[in-house]
Design a protein around this nucleic acid. Structure first.
Lengths: 151, 151
DNA sequence: GAAATATATTTGTCAAGGCAAATATGTTCT
DNA sequence: AGAACATATTTGCCTTGACAAATATATTTC
């Protein structure tokens, strides 16, 4: 009965597309982590990754760098500290702040996770050649800057 | 003391980049909606958009098309039906299912929102020329397919 | 230097979404 | 047809994250 030309042929906007890509990335990353025996959610993975790559920083710097609310960060830190993956030290210059630091166990965990991360990123980009990967990154950066430019 | 070449010069992975772009898009879209006097969250906007563009469909089709859990969809439909923007009709062929349909008010709401949507997408892409926009979409679609391809 | 203001962390509260169980129908297999 | 299985919707439960208030400390202003 229905004609073979549904209205739904209309393409997704890049807004929708980006949402879909992101949720697939998160899903795949969490699956990889679980398959590697790592009991971490995506957000926790991001936090450890940040600490591993950038080094110790305060909780609010960390929160900003992974776009997480400060309150939510406190609770994530509770969990990760509970697992022994990081520690809260007093900040040297600022007595309000903390210095969040990976423990050796946290560092080991990061080394265990990094292949997962690489596999997912590689899988995502497997249909793109190096030039195209470069361009995709460039376009995304330009979109991000355009969105952050007020007005 | 610290050298002016911090480790953090390292670029974000495209994974991180996509997450950032998405959250900016959502933020901006919700701001636009609110500025236009539309009391809807991003998810609700997506649901109405889908119904407006594709036409009536069952709750589970709708859930799949916006990547939302079935249970969450039920509750969103409760809210949107409560606001008079859509209605649940019995499905013609399948007595388990519903046929979700925009009301005239829902359709009017969509027409009120569509300029917001256009403004945000335009703002996001304002630094890209038409060819680049085309390419960005193409790359994202290829990434999405690559991620969905099992293995 | 005291007051006003800004920032860091924590905690409470709430809304949203994922998952699992319950129920009602469909579909497939034999 | 009957059994086994798959799908649609709803509901309960739990986790996560946003927002706001509270507290402590820094920074700026006068």
């Amino acid at each position: 009965m229905s004609p073979s030309t549904p209205l739904s042929v209309q393409k997704d906007s890049i807004g929708v597309l980006i949402g879909l890509v992101r949720s697939e990335l998160v899903r795949k990353m969490e699956a990889e982590l679980q398959a590697s025996g790592v009991e971490l959610r995506f957000t926790q993975f991001l936090i450890l990754k940040r600490l591993a790559l950038v080094g110790p920083m305060s909780a609010s710097e960390l929160a900003r760098s992974v776009e997480l609310d400060g309150g939510a960060m406190t609770r994530q830190l509770d969990q990760l500290e509970g697992k022994g993956l990081l520690r809260r030290h007093p900040h040297e210059q600022d007595r309000r702040a903390l210095r969040i630091e990976l423990t050796p166990a946290g560092d080991a965990m990061w080394r265990q996770m990094t292949p997962c991360n690489d596999r997912v990123l590689e899988a995502a980009q497997k249909a793109l050649d190096p030039t195209e990967r470069e361009q995709l990154r460039d376009y995304l950066e330009r979109v991000l800057h355009a969105l952050r430019d007020k007005n």
